[in-house]
């Protein structure tokens, strides 16, 4: 007799992922799908897809989705959530979307403590447009628009989003995790679950920053990219909970 021991989450579709081999999006999508199933959120969820590689995120889930203009996902999510406070609304954003063109929107959504959850994929590069410098590109990292490496004198240093947003009173929960190994994946699911619970309990703005890989634009094999991420990104973007107002008892 056959016994099913592993399956895709119910809220995910049959469509094969369009992401490159070794890309972290697939792992994060699966975690999101598992949590939507486990927390029974499918019927009231509206996801907000970004501009970036995640633009087609809605292909892989069978719940409602809205695709936002570049950087504006937190504003779109605000518009969805405010008149519909019982919906569960998350944005799924990359580093260019969230930390460059959408800086104003993310800061003000956090500051207003919008009851939304932000899933922030930080892979230190623009993926969809072909490997340009991101606001989180590391110092010295080569991209098509920093071909001699990111020069902090002229290009600034990478932005630490969780640290920045945790200074805002409105941010209820902010945590940085990675999906570079099974332990990291388990921690990521735990962080996202916490962030989702913050919203379900109407406690305000939550964000999980997920350090991710982009082997294609980093010019590496999938395996090498995992090592590069852990060796280079984690030291600059330390893991951990940056803000947890649910623990402070005032959220």
């Amino acid at each position: 007799m056959e016994k099913l021991v592993f399956d895709k989450p119910k809220c995910m579709t049959e469509r094969p992922l369009h992401y490159c081999p070794g890309c972290s999006h697939g792992i994060v999508h699966r975690i999101v799908g598992e949590l939507i199933d486990e927390m029974d959120l499918r019927d009231k969820t509206v996801g907000v897809a970004p501009v970036g590689c995640g633009v087609f995120a809605y292909w892989y889930f069978d719940f409602d989705f809205s695709q936002a203009p570049h950087g504006r996902a937190p504003a779109v999510a605000t518009g969805i959530k405010r008149p519909n406070p019982d919906l569960f609304v998350f944005t799924y954003q990359g580093d260019g979307d969230l930390a460059a063109i959408g800086t104003a929107e993310i800061i003000h959504a956090a500051n207003r403590s919008e009851d939304i959850t932000v899933i922030f994929i930080n892979n230190a590069i623009y993926g969809m447009t072909g490997g340009q410098m991101a606001p989180t590109t590391l110092v010295g990292q080569k991209t098509t628009t920093s071909p001699y490496g990111r020069d902090p004198e002229t290009m600034g240093k990478p932005i630490r989003v969780c640290e920045m947003l945790s200074t805002l009173e409105g941010t209820t929960y902010a945590e940085r995790v990675h999906v570079g190994d099974p332990k990291g994946v388990i921690a990521t699911k735990k962080a996202l679950k916490k962030a989702f619970e913050v919203q379900v309990n109407k406690k305000g703005f939550s964000i999980v920053e997920i350090l991710s890989t982009c082997p294609t634009n980093w010019g590496m094999t999938a395996v090498d990219s995992l090592g590069w991420m852990k060796d280079n990104m984690i030291p600059y973007f330390p893991l951990g909970v940056y803000k947890d107002k649910t623990k402070e008892g005032d959220a």
């Binding site: 504003a75 779109v76 518009g79 003000h108």
Partner: peptide, 28 residues
Amino acid sequence: ENGIFLQAESEVAAINMVYGAAGTGKRV
């Protein structure tokens, strides 16, 4: 009770909030 008024951080944000709310079928 069901009134939503939000002064956005910019016109750009405001129109995208409209986009979000309009997508849920609310008059906005």
